[in-house]
């Protein structure tokens, strides 16, 4: 028996198809996301990576005329059942988006927002958590003296780390990162990668990345997607050294197209 199957599955996609209107964006995706592991999703632009991870916290509910078929499970429960609480799902499955999207509020308020909407009132608890989250997201040193300034005054990379801090502050169980380092310099990227490796102990992480080295450095499993299909999924080492599919090989060796 493959060792994968005895690992604990945190999230699972089962025969997932997704449509934007008549665009068939995801085609029969079957994928396991293992607990306390980092799963990287790679693939060329437009292959459906963002679409897929946005399904994991029901973010695509907000898109008009979109349609989902198949099951997405979180800890054995179908997250799209009519009686599941979508607000609860989204709190448990946190997300950092491809483009930084800080609120037009202060740096502090950006991080405290998630706690406030989840009913945490204690000022001390909030302040401590804000500081802790900013530290974890490797942003604290840069903003400690200007927590009351608008988040929109931060640089793009700082904004993205703020979004990461904001996400961590609500202590989700699963973290979805959609190209979190796309607008970061190598130093911040390294910090984020270290953060991801550190968070692995407590969280289950899915990361979309265009950077093969990054996928290699941070992930335990890698999924390669192409034109809306999941072409290959497996241990990162195996997938990068002995890809089973020709398309995977071409992509990771940069011979694509």
């Amino acid at each position: 028996m493959d060792t994968d199957t005895i690992k604990i599955v945190r999230m699972l996609a089962e025969n997932v198809d997704f449509f934007y209107g008549s665009t068939h964006a995801l085609k029969n995706i079957n994928l396991n996301i293992f607990k306390n592991k980092v799963t990287a999703i790679i693939g060329p632009s437009g292959c459906g990576k963002s679409t897929f991870i946005r399904l994991l916290n029901r973010m695509n509910d907000l898109i008009p005329r979109s349609r989902l078929a198949g099951n997405i499970m979180l800890d054995g429960e179908n997250i799209n059942e009519p009686n599941t609480d979508v607000v609860d799902i989204r709190r448990r499955v946190g997300m950092v988006f491809q483009k930084p999207n800080p609120f037009p509020k202060s740096i502090f308020q950006n991080v405290s927002y998630g706690m406030e909407v989840n009913g945490i009132r204690d000022k001390n608890v909030i302040t401590e958590k804000v500081i802790e989250s900013l530290k974890k997201a490797a942003l604290w040193n840069e903003v400690m003296n200007r927590l009351d300034e608008s988040a929109l005054c931060l640089s793009g990379g700082q904004q993205q780390r703020l979004c990461i801090a904001r996400c961590l502050a609500v202590e989700p169980e699963v973290l979805l990162f959609d190209e979190p380092c796309a607008s970061l310099d190598p130093v911040s990227t390294k910090k984020i990668e270290e953060l991801i490796l550190g968070l692995k102990k407590e969280y289950t992480i899915v990361i979309v990345t265009h950077n093969m080295q990054q996928a290699g450095r941070v992930s335990d499993y890698t999924a390669f997607m192409y034109l809306g299909e999941l072409i290959e999924f497996g241990h990162t080492e195996k997938l990068f050294t002995v890809p089973k599919d020709k398309r995977t090989e071409d992509y990771i060796t940069g011979k694509f197209g």
């Binding site: 973010m59 989204r90 988006f97 998630g114």
Partner: peptide
């Protein structure tokens, strides 16, 4: 829309999102 998404992704309800993010 990305601001609404950010709020929803943190576990805010629709009304909280409107009140705290969209209206301001």
């Amino acid at each position: 829309q990305s601001l609404r998404e950010a709020s929803f992704a943190l576990g805010a309800t629709r009304w909280q999102t409107i009140k705290k993010v969209v209206l301001p």
